Amino acid sequence: MNKHAYTYTILQYRHDVWSGECMNVGVLVYCPDLSYLKLRIRSGGARLSNAYPGIDRSALLHDMRELERWFDRKNNERGSEWIWRSAHDIGLHLLGNDDSSLRWHLDASGVTNNPEAIHEQLFQRLVVKHDPEPGRMPRSDEQVFEVVKSKLKTAEVLSRMEPHTVRSSYSEVTFEHSFKNGKWHCLQAISLDSADAEQMQRKAERWAGVLVGISEAPEPFTVYLVTGKPSQSELLRQYERMMELLRHAPTRPVVLDEDESDEVARRIAGAAH
């Protein structure tokens, strides 16, 4: 069976242009002999939300779907642009490697008689390999917050909470549940229910980095972090280590486990009076 040359490139989401840290979110494959040009992207953003607190997931998924549709339209054209040298070149033609959050990585090639099958293999290996196992969805930050929400309501403090953005010269972060009593008290739930120890560490380190960015904010504030434990017992030791990492982050946040919801509510209610 004849083999046909194909090229591929990876679409990456770059959350912080300055640090250069990226996550693979799609794969573009181009096989001109078989008139195949297609971008495959993530269908959901749970892993992105867990990895990058504060990300505008809806806007990012919208932008990626627009890219996907553009390549679908281009695939149906039969003009001179089918002589592009590689998938990477086509990607750069549409979306250059500037300071935007989406960028192209890798200019690779191979041969195949089934571009759809090779596309699936590349997508599984390069984009979703480290996603949670099917049937086991890690809890979100919102689900962890639900654990403490009823306690805050009973303590008559939930109704007083509102979104507040802490700003410094370097960064800003919005805490959805905050109240002011002399200074701002900002509550954030963080799910550390991860697929593995490495993912858990990345998320804890990112939140520590968030606190670095606002540590020199001019206004006084206290951050309360409620952490959600992993459902896998073998990850509990790593979970304890990550709680300690967060306790030693800049601003010295109050870090309590979700099982300590009563204590969380007590401390916040005490600060509110």
Rank of each mutant, 00 (worst) to 15 (best):
L106K: 06
S215W: 00
M23C: 08
H15L: 11
S215A: 15
I10Q: 04
L92I: 15
V254K: 00
E198N: 09
R139Q: 08
L122M: 11
A59H: 10
M64G: 00
G110H: 05
W82C: 02
D16K: 03
L67S: 07
L67I: 10
V157K: 01
L94T: 11
F71R: 00
Q188H: 06
E21V: 13
T227I: 09
R42P: 00
A272S: 11
L246P: 00
A189V: 06
G182L: 09
S58Y: 14
R139E: 15
A46S: 11
A195F: 10
G228L: 09
A217I: 02
R266G: 05
H273E: 06
P230H: 05
D262M: 08
S169D: 15
A87Q: 05
P163H: 01
D196Y: 06
Y52R: 02
S194T: 09
E68Q: 08
E68W: 00
V17S: 08
N50T: 04
H62P: 00
M243P: 02
M1P: 01
K129H: 15
G96T: 13
E162L: 10
A204Y: 01
Q12F: 05
D141Q: 03
D72L: 14
F221N: 02
F71L: 09
W84K: 01
F221E: 00
L225V: 07
E263C: 00
T9M: 11
Y170G: 04
M161W: 03
Y224C: 09
S168Y: 01
E142A: 13
S150C: 12
Q199K: 13
P250N: 03
D98R: 12
L106I: 05
T222H: 08
R69G: 07
H248R: 12
I10G: 01
L37T: 01
L192H: 03
H88R: 11
T9N: 07
S233M: 10
E258Y: 06
S58P: 01
